[in-house]
Structure formats: C-alpha cells, structure tokens
Design a protein around this nucleic acid. Structure first.
Length: 460
RNA sequence: GCACAGGUGCGUGAGCCUGACUGAAACGGACCGGCUGUAACCCGGUUUCCCCUAGUGGGGCGCGGAGGUUCAAAUCCUCCCCUGUGCA
C-alpha cells in the first residue's frame, strides 16, 4: 500500500499497455532513478517500526536478515525461506567473487536471477573478511590482498573493486568497503582503522555513483511493477496460460522464461541499488560519534554499525550500539551488523535498530543448538533421545508442529542432512517470529505503551 | 590332528621385523561444551588406569594368559588359551 503511493508519485499511470522493451523507458522515462525509500511508521520509546522499499520488494522493519553467504542460506531452499517470511537475504561479496565469480553471476542476470530469489538482497562488501580472514590477508591504504582460502591464490579487494563486484552481483543494498577493526585494539590503531574506513567510504561512494547504472537487472528482469500489471491484464502470463502449456510441456528455455515471469514480487525497473555506509570506531564512544558524523557527512541512504560482536563483552556491545544510535539520523535505516541472539535482536530493535543479520541461527542450527521460547536447547544431548514432545511447544513452525525432539536428536546424531535443514528452518522461524513480535509491539506505538500501564486495557 | 594368519584402550586399528621418545598413533562411537556482517555438516574437551603431590613432578599396574631374556618388552623367547582360514 505504501509502495503504491510511492509509485504513483513517481510513475504516473503511463505504464500500462504496449510497454516498450526497455523498462527504463517504459515506466520510468520521466522518472529519476530511485534507490531506496524508508519511512518510520510507528515508534515506541526508541524503537521504530518502519518500511523499507527496495527494488525487489518492501521490507517491514525492524527486520532480521538471514545470511546466505554463498548465495544460499545453508540447508534451506528459497521457497521455504519465502514461506518463513524472509524479506531480505544477505550475500557475501568476497565469497561470491571467489566462487562462482562476479562476472559469472552478472552474466546470469545478477544474484536474484542466479539464485532464484525474487525478494531483496543485501551484500556485504568483504569488509568482515578483512577481520575474519586476518591470517590470510594484508591491508594497505589501497585495499586488501587476500590469499584465497580455497586455493591459495591471491586477490585484491579495494573500495572500488568491492563496489564493482557488488554492482555486478546486483543486490538491492550494498555495503561500503570497510575495515572491521579487531578487538581488542590499541586506541591509536582503532582511530587509524576508523579513519581508513572513512576514506574507503568516500571512495566507495564515488565509485558507486559513477557505476551504479551497471546493475545487471534491467536486461534480465522484465516483470512489470504492480501497477503496470494491474493495468495490463493481457500480460505474458495470461498468454501462456491461454496456450495451455503445462510445466512439463514447455521447453526448457521457455520454462525459464515462465519462471521469471512468475515472479510476482515486482522489480521496480526505475530503481537501482542503494549503498550503505558503515560506522566503525571500536569500543570508543567518542570515536563512534566521530565516525557517525563523518560518515553521515559523506551521505548514504542508510547506515550500518559495524565492528561489533567481535569478541567484546555483551555489555560493551550494547553500550556502543546505544551511543552510536544516538547520533545516527532518524530518517535513515540503521543496520546493526552481525548481531545476535534472539534476546539481543529483540533488545536492539527496541533501541532503534532497523536491520540486523547474524549467522548464529543458521550456524548454531547446523551444530545442534536450537533457540526456543524456553531458552536454548542442545538437541545433541542424550536426554532428548526419548523425548517425543515438540522442540518448542510455543512455536508454530513446520518443524515444531510436526517432529519430536527425539526425532530431531536422532537426525542430528545420525548426521542426516535433514537435521541441518529442520534445525535451520526452526531457528530462522524463531528469529523471524521474534522480530515480528517486536515489530508488532512497536507498531502499537507509544499509545500502546501508555495503555500497557493500565491493567485491563480493553482491546480496540 | 597339522599348517598358516591373528588376539592392543568403548569400536576399528597403527606400533611388533629394527626393545628405550607409548598410558599407547589415527579414525570412529558415546557423552559434554562452544558457536554473533560464515575459511564453520565446524571447533574444543572427556571417554584413555590407579596412588602420592598445592603444583612441577614421582610411583605402580597395563597391549589374550603364564613364565623367561634384558638396565629397559605391546615389541624378543617358551608354553598355554581363544578366533579365522586352508589341508587332512
């Protein structure tokens, strides 16, 4: 609904029939390039419930973004992710650059097309790998030289090449190339690292602005936006149905075409990628503030808080998040990178974080650690061998409603791949539910928080 | 009955020829931890002895059983038991 208002504003009713091949000219001839739209719809305390409109659909914030480093959320097919309500996924520039290679993905139409994911994608720039692959890399002002963990070959990533790669991959939101500062670090080191990240942010932005038109979407995606389709009922899709072609009868190339045409989540052909800046500054509140101010000065449509959850005590993480949030502009999405447990993501959302990602739910799931309404469960434990109850009696996910703890433990102990699949589905489901609950409570707004003081407040 | 091959910790199984660095490799099982912009179906620990010592450390028992050789044996020698295969 919000999105249509937006489109109406920008794309008048022009775009109905006889849409030319070049979608940019079709719906968007007179329209300026649109990157991303964000609006806060409700607040409660510091928490915000908002809506982020990307070229590949809307996102209700606060949002949890599952990590799909190699164009896959390990163990979970895309259709299941959709059913779980995943609105946006993460991909990783460094990993995809090594394999299958950016050029390959670009030729296949970009990440969305390649991985058959019609909703939004965010790619991390490779900045985190500067931290996590510290054994295999060398950092200079120019950029970072990595020794590939796959074959030992040497690769160079700079703000420019990271942008180039991310444009080629074609995510909706891409990240500035930063240095995730290690912890602990000397004050001088933290400052230098932060300064370099700022210089890299500028270079990232400059390069991005010069090349943002190179996204691979427009050649590949010909799906009309919502209004276009509504006002053009005789679309491709109907034509095909008229022809009476079933899935089996359609030749392969046509089936691919159909698959694309079936993407009901519109790509806004006028839209392009958005580049987010990343705040660094270690565990130093002053440096964080400086980093925010100077990153905001460079100017981005969204800001991330990076460099946290790198080994520091949780209390410090929280302190830095709060201190950083204080200075971030309220009208832009705020993305806390790499956090956290279910309790943490709920807490940070109420503090005013709009986006979060974390490998914890997916990785922990594969390792037998499951998050439930009653706390953590290590499904490997012998005590569950005979437990025929559901994993989490308060969870409505497909795993909890169908399988017993005993079965899940058996799958894990037997190293069945299904264990990883089911565990991941549950954990993601739990995370997404958690976020939905938080959003709901924020969406009730300050009025609700006022009412919550009243014991038996009647429901409207 | 004879001839080979073999018996090692929870399991598989190295070590034995060429004795000391082996309380015993490696892999696995079982159990317990860890995992926070994914070098992660991964990583760590226990199971693998007993006693003395705060600890470093020291002593004892231990590789089918019994005995022997030796400063020193899972490793060499003798006998016995058990398992498998082949031949009668």
């Amino acid at each position: 609904m919000k999105v249509s208002r937006l489109h109406n504003k920008r794309s008048p009713a022009v775009c109905g029939r006889g849409r030319p091949q070049d979608s940019r000219q079709g719906c968007g001839a007179t329209i300026p390039i649109m990157a991303i739209q964000f609006q806060v719809e409700a607040t409660r305390g510091a928490g915000r419930a908002g809506r982020l409109v990307t070229p590949h659909g809307e996102i209700e914030t606060p949002v949890f973004m599952p990590v799909g480093t190699l164009a896959s959320v390990k163990g979970v097919p895309q259709d299941v992710l959709e059913e779980l309500g995943v609105q946006i996924l993460l991909g990783n520039t460094y990993h995809l650059y090594l394999r299958p290679g950016v050029e390959q993905v670009r030729q296949l139409g970009g990440l969305h097309s390649f991985m058959a994911w019609r909703r939004a994608i965010l790619t991390d720039s490779g900045g985190f790998q500067v931290f996590s692959l510290s054994e295999l890399r060398k950092v200079t002002e120019d950029g970072v030289t990595f020794r590939s963990h796959l074959d030992g070959s040497s690769h160079f990533l700079s703000p420019e090449s990271a942008m180039d790669a991310q444009i080629g991959l074609g995510a909706d939101i891409i990240m500035a190339f930063d240095e995730c500062t290690e912890y602990p670090a000397e004050p001088a080191r933290v400052r230098e690292s932060m300064e370099m990240t700022l210089r890299w942010a500028e270079r990232s932005k400059r390069y991005f602005e010069e090349h943002e038109h190179e996204v691979p979407w427009e050649r590949q995606y010909r799906v009309p936006s919502t209004e276009c389709r509504e006002s053009a009922p005789g679309s491709r899709r109907d034509n095909r149905r008229d022809a009476g072609a079933t899935q089996q009868q359609i030749p392969r190339f046509a089936r691919n075409d159909k698959r694309r045409a079936r993407n009901d989540q519109p790509v806004n052909p006028d839209a392009t990628q958005a580049l987010f800046g990343i705040v660094q500054g270690g565990m130093d509140v002053e440096l964080r503030q400086q980093s925010v101010e100077r990153t905001v000065e460079i100017g981005f449509p969204g800001y991330a808080i990076g460099g946290l959850s790198v080994g520091e005590p949780r209390a410090v993480t929280r302190e830095i998040v709060e201190a950083t949030l204080e200075h971030l502009p309220a009208d832009k999405p705020r993305y806390l990178m790499g956090v956290g447990t279910p309790e943490e993501i709920a807490e940070y959302a109420t503090l005013g974080i709009d986006m979060m990602d974390c490998v914890l739910p997916t990785r922990a799931a594969r390792h037998g650690l499951l998050f439930t309404s009653e706390g953590k469960i290590s499904i490997k434990q012998a005590r569950y061998a005979g437990d025929d109850g559901p994993l989490d009696p308060n969870c409505a996910c497909t795993v909890c409603t169908r399988y017993s703890r005993a079965y899940l433990r058996h799958l894990y102990a037997s190293k069945e791949v299904l264990a990883q699949v089911l565990n991941t589905v549950h954990n993601l489901s739990f995370y997404l539910d958690t976020m939905r609950r938080v959003r709901h409570s924020i969406a009730l707004g300050d009025r609700a928080s006022f009412l919550s003081g009243v014991r038996s407040a009647p429901k409207p």
